[in-house]
């Protein structure tokens, strides 16, 4: 096992436990929970194979589903964002992404915020559509998406700033 595999496994477990043991029980104002586990998919090293990202995203979503008794909604949402990740990367970072030379720690804050926000909103929309599973309750879906997204974006943005490696 090389170093990056160990790191990934550890990060996987940490993110999973933080999500199911802490974030699933916040219930701010009765029903608003952040879903910070998408950080794992968001910040996965850019140059890795897309297949790996999709499979890992599915596994992570499935594990969250196991803990929160939600069928397959997290798995579906996580697979979706893992699949469209390159598109979002290109949209938010533009040319730098084309050259395959970016690292999340030295991107601009604005770009990073756009990336995180788009990522989160898409994920939450898929998640809540499948969870409610009733198109006539679209208002409820959008409302849940909006409030949870705000919460998740704030937490994700803060943690990328807090845990990013120091620039030399």
């Amino acid at each position: 096992m090389n170093n990056s595999a160990v790191n990934t496994t550890l990060l996987f477990i940490t993110v999973l436990l933080v999500q199911v043991l802490v974030c699933n029980h916040i219930n701010f104002l009765g029903y608003i929970n952040p879903y910070v586990y998408i950080l794992f998919i968001m910040l996965f090293p850019i140059r890795t194979n897309r297949t790996v990202i999709i499979i890992l995203g599915f596994l992570l979503g499935l594990c969250v589903d196991f803990f929160s008794d939600s069928g397959g909604v997290h798995a579906a949402a996580a697979v979706t964002i893992a699949y469209i990740r390159p598109v979002l990367l290109k949209f938010s970072f533009g040319m730098i992404y084309e050259h395959q030379s970016i690292k999340f720690s030295n991107t601009e804050l604005g770009n990073r915020l756009i990336y995180i926000s788009l990522f989160t909103v898409i994920h939450h929309f898929v998640l809540f559509s499948l969870e409610v599973f009733n198109i006539s309750k679209i208002i409820l879906i959008l409302q849940k998406t909006l409030f949870s997204s705000i919460f998740t974006i704030i937490l994700c943005f803060m943690s990328t700033i807090l845990f990013s490696k120091k620039r030399r």
């Binding site: 499979i55 499935l62 589903d65 069928g71």
Partner: peptide, 20 residues
Amino acid sequence: TFLLFLLLFGVSLALTIQSH
């Protein structure tokens, strides 16, 4: 990649429907 995505998405959709 796309087929893998479709496969996994289908699996999770099936699990979701089953849970209802």
